[in-house]
Amino acid sequence: MIAEVKDRVDFRAIASKARQLIIQMIYEAESGHPGGSLSAIDVLTYLYFQELRLDPARPDWEGRDRFILSKGHACPALYAIAVERGLMPVDLLWGFRKTGRPLQGHPHVGSTPWVETSTGSLGQGFSVAIGMALGLRHQTLPARVYVMLGDGELQEGEVWEGAMCAPHYRLDNLCVIIDYNQMQSDDLTKNIMGLEPLKPKWESFNWKVIEIDGHDYAQIASAFDQAKHIVGTPTVILAHTIKGKGVSFMENSPCWHGSVKLREEELIRALQDLGADASEMPPYLNGSFKQGEDQHGQ
């Protein structure tokens, strides 16, 4: 089945394009969170192109699976994949973080209806997902709920309130993904507030835990496939990822967490790393994308 999926959808190509969009929208906004967006995008690509039952023409379809980005600061990844999946037009990206435009600095259901809930205060999206899973089951609706948390987010006490709650209610329609890039805003997660041993922590809270490489589509596919067949227990996927994945100078560097103003030479270098060429550049660059040239002259 996984092989069939790979034949049908070129996840890597989609993710690569999504990474370019992430960099472009953060450049245009002059702020945003690239590191955690780039680490999350492979899992999001698989979710939106393979796993989630959704209908881009009817984003409010009652039977849809729900996805919540609890680490709301990584919304450039969510917006990029939404564009590619046909949930919104690409032009909206160039208004990201700008006054009067719909794409807020953190996801907001009020201005982007296909977003399932407003996030941006860590821990809350997880609890909202639990509420959705509980509510769907209460109404005997078969839809599933997926929620992505950051690893730094796990320092929030609310997460562990929820971690007790979901297994108590045997929410097997809930699947959590932890974007385990080992970095947070100020430093390495282990230096800020250590999380390890993380797998036993979740296991001792009665979760089914699956550990994967969050950039390997075969492993991602296998994990989501397993999670769907687990009965009576929620699943958490510990997705080991690389912060800033795909952009050489951003990889494994907490200083690219956010909120970063990208210089034009950084934009160009990042897009080159991601395999973009001049013909793919967005119109706002006005033809200024010339390989290796520093347009700022600084």
Binding site: V109, G123, G125, A129, M132, G135, L136, G162
Partner: peptide, 9 residues
């Protein structure tokens, strides 16, 4: 926050 999730469905 669970209440928010319940209301959303």
């Amino acid at each position: 926050a669970v209440a928010g999730g319940l209301a959303s469905v």
